[in-house]
């Protein structure tokens, strides 16, 4: 079960605004999905190691060699609000 308060808390963590209707709907839908998911608890997982990656690779690192950066104009080309050679955003405190 996930109630309205929890939905709002999680939405805040995810920086997601929800209308009242959406909160209502998500609380119902997420509850049924989470209930389904929770049947995992039938399994005894105490001695099982988690799998984060299925790749049996040794991992990969990069040599510390510079590569070309993007042109300044290209970097800013898609910015919603470019200003002063950077990406403008509203301040945290309005």
């Amino acid at each position: 079960m996930i109630d309205r308060t929890q939905v709002l808390h999680v939405a805040r963590l995810a920086r997601l605004q929800l209308t009242d209707d959406e909160v209502e709907r998500m609380s119902t839908e997420l509850s049924s999905i989470l209930d389904h998911i929770e049947t995992i608890s039938e399994l005894d997982l105490s001695d099982v190691a988690p799998t984060a990656h299925v790749v049996a690779s040794e991992g990969a690192l990069r040599a510390d060699a510079p590569r070309a950066s993007l042109d300044h104009d290209v970097a800013l080309a898609q910015a919603p609000d470019p200003a002063d050679d950077g990406f403008r955003v509203p301040s945290p405190q309005a």
Partner: peptide, 20 residues
């Protein structure tokens, strides 16, 4: 993040500019 003062586009509010 560089404080950019009041922004012209966002009326009367403060803004910052990000340099990555």
């Amino acid at each position: 993040t560089i404080h950019a003062g009041a922004s012209g586009r966002i009326h009367g509010s403060e803004a910052s500019v990000v340099d990555f």
